[in-house]
Structure formats: C-alpha cells, structure tokens
C-alpha cells in the first residue's frame, strides 16, 4: 500500500518544482492583491488612531484653557464692575462735596455783598441826610432866627442835632 509513495515509484521531481513555482507565484499574487494594501491600510489606521488620540488630547487641553480663560474673564469683569461702581460713588461724593462747598461760598459771598451794600447804602443815606439836614436846617434856621444866631452857635446846634440822629 505504500508503493505509490515517492520513494517507491521514483521521485516525482516535477511535482516539487511545480509546487515550488506555484507557491512562489501565489505568494507574489497575494502580495500584490492583498498583502500590501491590507498592511498599508492597517498601518494607516494605526497612524490615524494615534493621531486622533493626540488631537483629542490637544483639544481637551484647549477646552480646559478656554474654560480657564472664561473663568478669569468673569472674575475680572466682576472686579471691574465693582471698581466702576466704587469710582462712580466716589466721584458722586466728590461732586456733591464740591457743589455744597461752592454753594456755601456763594451764599457767604452773597451775604457779605449784601451786608456791604447795606452798609454802603446806610453810609450814603447818612451822609446825604447829614448834608440835607445841614442845608435844610441852615435854610430853616436862617429863615426863622435870622440875626440872633451866630455861625458858631448854629453849627453847635446842628451837630448836637445830628448826634441825636445818629443814635
């Protein structure tokens, strides 16, 4: 039953060559048709996955950075708002103080002016009255007691009279 084996029937050397050549041919065909594209694609896929992982890591970091920035901006704006309110308050206070002081000085000066005016008026009135009275009294006195009164007596009389007016 073993008589058909290679050793028994004479070596079928042709078969060896046939299988060797066919196998090399098959290997070559598979390399062209499948092996190269498949390995290329597997390599590409591995590259893509590692790229994707890197990109994901990067975008995660970016997102964290953005969130941090937003947080900072928010805190900043809150601080800014409070400082704006503060400065506005301060400015208002200052303005109020200024206006008040201005008003006070204005009022003071008005009062002073008025006082001065009144004094002036009084002085004017007094002097005019003095003159008028002097003239009038001279006129009246000259009319009433024309001869009896000397000039000195008359002046003394007028002065005493005016003094009485001043009080």
């Amino acid at each position: 039953m073993f008589s058909h084996l290679a050793v028994a029937t004479g070596l079928a050397t042709g078969d060896m060559i046939f299988f060797a050549v066919c196998f090399i041919l098959l290997m070559w065909l598979i390399k062209i048709v499948a092996w190269k594209p498949i390995n290329q694609m597997m390599q590409d896929r591995a590259d893509k996955i590692s790229n994707d992982i890197d990109t994901a890591e990067k975008s995660r970091e970016e997102a964290a950075q953005l969130a941090q920035q937003r947080q900072d901006a928010l805190a900043n704006s809150r601080q800014e708002a409070s400082s704006i309110v503060d400065s506005a308050k301060k400015q208002g206070q200052q303005q109020r103080d200024g206006i008040l002081a201005q008003a006070q000085t204005d009022a003071q000066s008005l009062k002073d002016n008025a006082k001065k005016d009144i004094e002036q008026e009084r002085q004017d009135a007094l002097s005019s009255v003095r003159n008028d009275v002097a003239d009038l009294s001279i006129e009246i006195a000259s009319k009433i007691i024309q001869k009896e009164l000397s000039a000195d007596d008359q002046k003394a009389l007028i002065d005493s009279y005016i003094e009485g007016l001043g009080k």
């Binding site: 004479g10 070596l11 079928a12 050397t13 042709g14 078969d15 060559i17 046939f18 299988f19 066919c22």
Partner: peptide, 13 residues
Amino acid sequence: GGLTFNAANIISG
C-alpha cells in the same frame, strides 16, 4: 521534460 509529474498532485494543487 525528463521530469515525472503526478497528475493528481498537479490537478488538486
């Protein structure tokens, strides 16, 4: 070509 071939092997191969 001076080589022995086995028909069964060639066909099934």
